[in-house]
Protein backbone atom coordinates (compact mmCIF):
# COMPACT_ATOMS: atom_id res chain seq x y z
CA UNK A 1 0.00 0.00 0.00
CA UNK A 2 2.71 2.44 0.98
CA UNK A 3 4.32 1.75 -2.35
CA UNK A 4 1.19 2.72 -4.23
CA UNK A 5 1.07 5.89 -2.15
CA UNK A 6 4.61 6.69 -3.15
CA UNK A 7 3.76 6.27 -6.82
CA UNK A 8 0.72 8.44 -6.42
CA UNK A 9 2.69 11.14 -4.64
CA UNK A 10 5.40 11.12 -7.28
CA UNK A 11 2.76 11.39 -9.97
CA UNK A 12 0.99 14.30 -8.36
CA UNK A 13 4.24 16.13 -7.67
CA UNK A 14 5.41 15.77 -11.25
CA UNK A 15 2.13 16.84 -12.76
CA UNK A 16 1.96 19.81 -10.40
CA UNK A 17 5.49 20.78 -11.37
CA UNK A 18 4.74 20.47 -15.06
CA UNK A 19 1.58 22.55 -14.64
CA UNK A 20 3.41 25.27 -12.80
CA UNK A 21 6.15 25.25 -15.40
CA UNK A 22 3.75 25.47 -18.27
CA UNK A 23 1.25 28.04 -17.02
CA UNK A 24 4.09 30.35 -16.09
CA UNK A 25 4.62 31.49 -19.64
CA UNK A 26 1.04 31.57 -20.90
CA UNK A 27 0.28 34.66 -22.98
CA UNK A 28 -1.40 37.90 -21.90
CA UNK A 29 -4.25 37.43 -19.50
CA UNK A 30 -7.70 37.58 -21.09
CA UNK A 31 -10.30 38.66 -18.62
CA UNK A 32 -13.80 37.64 -19.57
CA UNK A 33 -17.10 38.43 -17.92
CA UNK A 34 -19.37 35.50 -17.27
CA UNK A 35 -22.26 35.67 -19.73
CA UNK A 36 -25.65 35.55 -17.97
CA UNK A 37 -27.22 33.24 -20.54
CA UNK A 38 -30.99 32.75 -20.68
CA UNK A 39 -32.49 30.05 -22.85
CA UNK A 40 -36.18 30.89 -22.47
CA UNK A 41 -38.06 31.67 -25.68
CA UNK A 42 -38.50 35.38 -24.94
CA UNK A 43 -34.74 35.95 -24.51
CA UNK A 44 -33.87 33.83 -27.51
CA UNK A 45 -36.44 35.61 -29.70
CA UNK A 46 -35.10 38.98 -28.59
CA UNK A 47 -31.59 37.73 -29.35
CA UNK A 48 -32.69 36.46 -32.76
CA UNK A 49 -34.17 39.84 -33.61
CA UNK A 50 -30.97 41.65 -32.59
CA UNK A 51 -28.91 39.11 -34.49
CA UNK A 52 -30.88 39.53 -37.69
CA UNK A 53 -30.95 43.34 -37.42
CA UNK A 54 -27.37 43.95 -36.35
CA UNK A 55 -25.24 40.96 -37.39
CA UNK A 56 -26.85 39.35 -40.40
CA UNK A 57 -26.06 42.31 -42.65
CA UNK A 58 -22.37 41.49 -42.87
CA UNK A 59 -22.14 38.05 -41.23
CA UNK A 60 -23.90 34.96 -42.46
CA UNK A 61 -25.22 32.11 -40.35
CA UNK A 62 -25.12 29.80 -43.29
CA UNK A 63 -25.68 26.48 -41.50
CA UNK A 64 -28.90 27.63 -39.89
CA UNK A 65 -32.30 27.52 -41.58
CA UNK A 66 -34.86 30.21 -40.77
CA UNK A 67 -37.50 27.62 -39.95
CA UNK A 68 -35.27 26.22 -37.21
CA UNK A 69 -36.41 29.29 -35.27
CA UNK A 70 -39.64 27.37 -34.71
CA UNK A 71 -37.73 25.72 -31.89
CA UNK A 72 -37.50 29.03 -30.04
CA UNK A 73 -41.22 29.52 -30.36
CA UNK A 74 -41.67 31.38 -33.65
CA UNK A 75 -44.21 30.24 -36.23
CA UNK A 76 -43.43 30.05 -39.93
CA UNK A 77 -45.73 33.01 -40.48
CA UNK A 78 -43.95 35.12 -37.83
CA UNK A 79 -40.60 34.22 -39.35
CA UNK A 80 -41.86 35.15 -42.81
CA UNK A 81 -43.36 38.45 -41.68
CA UNK A 82 -40.68 39.71 -39.30
CA UNK A 83 -37.36 38.11 -40.01
CA UNK A 84 -37.13 37.09 -43.64
CA UNK A 85 -35.24 39.92 -45.34
CA UNK A 86 -32.68 38.29 -47.56
CA UNK A 87 -34.30 34.95 -48.31
CA UNK A 88 -37.65 34.01 -49.77
CA UNK A 89 -38.41 30.71 -48.12
CA UNK A 90 -38.52 29.81 -44.43
CA UNK A 91 -36.54 26.68 -45.22
CA UNK A 92 -33.64 28.74 -46.57
CA UNK A 93 -30.28 29.07 -44.86
CA UNK A 94 -29.36 32.36 -43.21
CA UNK A 95 -26.96 33.47 -45.89
CA UNK A 96 -26.26 37.04 -46.92
CA UNK A 97 -26.00 38.80 -50.26
CA UNK A 98 -22.44 39.99 -49.75
CA UNK A 99 -19.87 37.88 -51.51
CA UNK A 100 -16.93 36.68 -49.40
CA UNK A 101 -14.36 38.02 -51.86
CA UNK A 102 -15.91 41.50 -51.90
CA UNK A 103 -16.26 41.52 -48.15
CA UNK A 104 -12.59 40.76 -47.81
CA UNK A 105 -11.80 43.83 -49.91
CA UNK A 106 -13.97 46.08 -47.79
CA UNK A 107 -12.98 44.89 -44.33
CA UNK A 108 -9.52 43.45 -44.89
CA UNK A 109 -10.86 40.10 -43.78
CA UNK A 110 -14.14 38.49 -44.72
CA UNK A 111 -16.55 38.70 -41.77
CA UNK A 112 -16.67 35.12 -40.47
CA UNK A 113 -19.80 33.02 -40.58
CA UNK A 114 -21.31 33.19 -37.11
CA UNK A 115 -23.29 29.95 -36.90
CA UNK A 116 -20.72 28.14 -34.74
CA UNK A 117 -18.79 31.18 -33.50
CA UNK A 118 -19.79 30.52 -29.88
CA UNK A 119 -18.23 27.07 -30.05
CA UNK A 120 -15.01 28.25 -31.69
CA UNK A 121 -14.43 31.12 -29.25
CA UNK A 122 -14.22 28.89 -26.18
CA UNK A 123 -10.82 28.67 -24.49
CA UNK A 124 -9.42 28.05 -21.06
CA UNK A 125 -10.28 31.67 -20.23
CA UNK A 126 -13.99 30.95 -20.47
CA UNK A 127 -16.77 29.72 -22.71
CA UNK A 128 -17.33 31.10 -26.18
CA UNK A 129 -20.40 32.85 -24.82
CA UNK A 130 -18.28 34.62 -22.18
CA UNK A 131 -15.93 35.81 -24.87
CA UNK A 132 -18.75 37.14 -27.05
CA UNK A 133 -20.51 38.76 -24.09
CA UNK A 134 -17.30 40.59 -23.13
CA UNK A 135 -16.35 41.40 -26.71
CA UNK A 136 -19.67 42.97 -27.63
CA UNK A 137 -19.54 45.22 -24.55
CA UNK A 138 -15.92 46.34 -24.80
CA UNK A 139 -15.68 48.32 -28.00
CA UNK A 140 -14.05 51.70 -27.47
CA UNK A 141 -13.18 54.75 -29.56
CA UNK A 142 -9.69 54.62 -31.06
CA UNK A 143 -8.73 57.19 -33.66
CA UNK A 144 -5.72 55.12 -34.72
CA UNK A 145 -7.95 52.48 -36.24
CA UNK A 146 -9.37 52.88 -39.77
CA UNK A 147 -12.88 52.19 -38.45
CA UNK A 148 -12.40 54.48 -35.45
CA UNK A 149 -13.10 51.55 -33.14
CA UNK A 150 -11.01 49.13 -31.15
CA UNK A 151 -11.82 46.35 -28.72
CA UNK A 152 -10.36 45.27 -25.40
CA UNK A 153 -10.56 41.51 -25.92
CA UNK A 154 -9.90 41.60 -29.68
CA UNK A 155 -7.17 44.12 -30.29
CA UNK A 156 -7.11 45.82 -33.70
CA UNK A 157 -10.40 44.21 -34.57
CA UNK A 158 -11.50 44.76 -38.17
CA UNK A 159 -15.16 45.17 -37.27
CA UNK A 160 -16.57 48.53 -36.23
CA UNK A 161 -18.94 48.65 -33.26
CA UNK A 162 -22.17 47.51 -34.88
CA UNK A 163 -24.39 48.31 -31.91
CA UNK A 164 -22.94 51.70 -31.01
CA UNK A 165 -26.30 53.34 -31.42
CA UNK A 166 -27.53 51.17 -28.56
CA UNK A 167 -24.51 51.27 -26.26
CA UNK A 168 -23.18 54.72 -27.04
CA UNK A 169 -19.49 55.50 -27.34
CA UNK A 170 -16.89 54.38 -24.83
CA UNK A 171 -13.31 55.35 -24.24
CA UNK A 172 -10.84 53.02 -22.55
CA UNK A 173 -8.45 53.98 -19.79
CA UNK A 174 -5.36 51.80 -19.65
CA UNK A 175 -2.60 51.60 -17.06
CA UNK A 176 0.89 50.24 -17.60
CA UNK A 177 2.05 47.56 -15.22
CA UNK A 178 5.13 45.41 -14.85
CA UNK A 179 4.48 42.14 -16.65
CA UNK A 180 6.96 40.15 -14.57
CA UNK A 181 9.41 39.69 -17.43
CA UNK A 182 11.02 43.12 -17.14
CA UNK A 183 8.67 44.68 -19.69
CA UNK A 184 5.45 46.55 -19.35
CA UNK A 185 1.96 45.51 -20.32
CA UNK A 186 -1.18 47.50 -20.90
CA UNK A 187 -3.99 46.70 -18.51
CA UNK A 188 -7.53 47.93 -18.82
CA UNK A 189 -8.46 50.08 -15.88
CA UNK A 190 -11.99 51.01 -16.88
CA UNK A 191 -14.27 51.82 -19.78
CA UNK A 192 -16.16 55.08 -19.71
CA UNK A 193 -19.23 55.98 -21.71
CA UNK A 194 -18.65 59.43 -23.15
CA UNK A 195 -21.69 59.60 -25.40
CA UNK A 196 -24.88 57.90 -24.33
CA UNK A 197 -26.66 55.47 -26.62
CA UNK A 198 -30.32 54.48 -26.80
CA UNK A 199 -29.94 52.05 -23.93
CA UNK A 200 -28.70 52.59 -20.39
CA UNK A 201 -25.84 50.29 -19.40
CA UNK A 202 -27.96 47.62 -17.69
CA UNK A 203 -30.38 47.43 -20.58
CA UNK A 204 -27.54 47.13 -23.07
CA UNK A 205 -25.92 44.36 -21.03
CA UNK A 206 -29.21 42.49 -21.00
CA UNK A 207 -29.65 42.95 -24.72
CA UNK A 208 -26.14 41.59 -25.34
CA UNK A 209 -26.86 38.67 -22.99
CA UNK A 210 -29.95 37.82 -25.06
CA UNK A 211 -28.01 38.15 -28.29
CA UNK A 212 -25.23 35.90 -26.96
CA UNK A 213 -27.80 33.41 -25.69
CA UNK A 214 -29.20 33.24 -29.19
CA UNK A 215 -25.76 32.85 -30.75
CA UNK A 216 -25.00 30.06 -28.27
CA UNK A 217 -28.28 28.34 -29.10
CA UNK A 218 -27.53 28.73 -32.80
CA UNK A 219 -24.11 27.10 -32.36
CA UNK A 220 -25.84 23.86 -31.50
CA UNK A 221 -29.63 24.01 -31.78
CA UNK A 222 -29.92 20.40 -30.67
CA UNK A 223 -28.18 21.00 -27.32
CA UNK A 224 -31.36 21.09 -25.26
CA UNK A 225 -32.71 18.03 -27.02
CA UNK A 226 -29.37 16.33 -26.56
CA UNK A 227 -29.39 16.66 -22.79
CA UNK A 228 -32.99 15.49 -22.61
CA UNK A 229 -32.30 12.37 -24.64
CA UNK A 230 -29.10 11.86 -22.66
CA UNK A 231 -31.06 11.65 -19.42
CA UNK A 232 -33.18 8.84 -20.80
CA UNK A 233 -30.21 7.01 -22.26
CA UNK A 234 -28.37 7.10 -18.94
CA UNK A 235 -31.47 5.95 -17.08
CA UNK A 236 -31.92 2.93 -19.37
CA UNK A 237 -28.22 2.08 -19.15
CA UNK A 238 -28.35 2.32 -15.36
CA UNK A 239 -31.23 -0.18 -15.26
CA UNK A 240 -29.42 -2.42 -17.72
CA UNK A 241 -26.30 -2.11 -15.60
CA UNK A 242 -28.09 -3.35 -12.50
CA UNK A 243 -29.71 -6.23 -14.40
CA UNK A 244 -26.49 -7.37 -16.06
CA UNK A 245 -24.67 -7.12 -12.74
CA UNK A 246 -27.24 -9.36 -11.04
CA UNK A 247 -27.11 -11.79 -13.92
CA UNK A 248 -23.33 -11.83 -13.85
CA UNK A 249 -23.39 -12.57 -10.11
CA UNK A 250 -25.99 -15.26 -10.59
CA UNK A 251 -24.03 -17.04 -13.32
CA UNK A 252 -20.67 -16.72 -11.60
CA UNK A 253 -21.87 -18.07 -8.27
CA UNK A 254 -21.62 -21.55 -9.80
CA UNK A 255 -17.84 -21.17 -9.88
CA UNK A 256 -15.80 -22.11 -6.88
Amino acid sequence: MSFKNKILRALIATVAFATAAATHAAGPELRLDKAPLQFDNASLQHGAKLFINYCLNCHSASYLRYNRLQEIGLSDQQIKDNLLFTADKVGDLMTIGMRPAEAKQWFGAAPPDLTVIARSRASHYGSGADWLYTYLRQFYRDTNRPTGWNNVVFESVGMPHAMWDLQGEQVAHFVEREDGHGGKAKHLERLEIVKAGKMPKEEYDEAVADLVSFITWMGEPSQHNRKQIGGWVLAVLAVLGVLTYLLKRSIWKDLH
Binding site: F17, A18, A21, A22, H24, A25, A26, G27
Partner: peptide, 9 residues
Protein backbone atom coordinates in the same frame (compact mmCIF):
# COMPACT_ATOMS: atom_id res chain seq x y z
CA UNK B 1 2.27 25.77 -25.79
CA UNK B 2 6.02 25.14 -25.53
CA UNK B 3 7.85 26.85 -22.67
CA UNK B 4 11.53 26.64 -21.67
CA UNK B 5 10.76 24.75 -18.45
CA UNK B 6 8.21 22.57 -20.21
CA UNK B 7 10.81 21.61 -22.81
CA UNK B 8 13.31 20.55 -20.13
CA UNK B 9 10.64 18.52 -18.31
Amino acid sequence: PPTPVGTIV
